[in-house]
């Protein structure tokens, strides 16, 4: 397990899933806003979307830092 999480493939997978999280988060935010407009009931979905985007950004940032360090 430890060897796996130190590998380059794992780092790349994290970056790809990070990008997917960003896309999914953005889709949730846009779809919710389009469907409900401005409504208090949509707050949980908006927070969920925002949390996915932040998690994705963190993963992508980690990968970028790793690449800079390796270079």
């Amino acid at each position: 397990m430890r060897r796996l999480v130190r590998s380059r493939a794992y780092a790349r997978t994290r970056a790809v899933t990070g990008a997917l999280f960003i896309a999914l988060g953005a889709a949730i935010v846009v779809r919710t806003l389009l469907m409900l407009g401005l409504d208090l009931r949509e707050i949980p979905a908006l927070v969920l979307g925002a949390a996915l985007i932040v998690l994705g950004l963190l993963r992508v940032r980690d990968y970028a830092t790793l690449r800079r360090t390796v270079r």
Binding site: P44, A51, L52
Partner: peptide, 12 residues
């Protein structure tokens, strides 16, 4: 963030 996402996703 992971825990928050799971909790909000499961409840929704």
């Amino acid at each position: 963030l992971t825990i928050l996402i799971f909790a909000l996703s499961y409840s929704n």
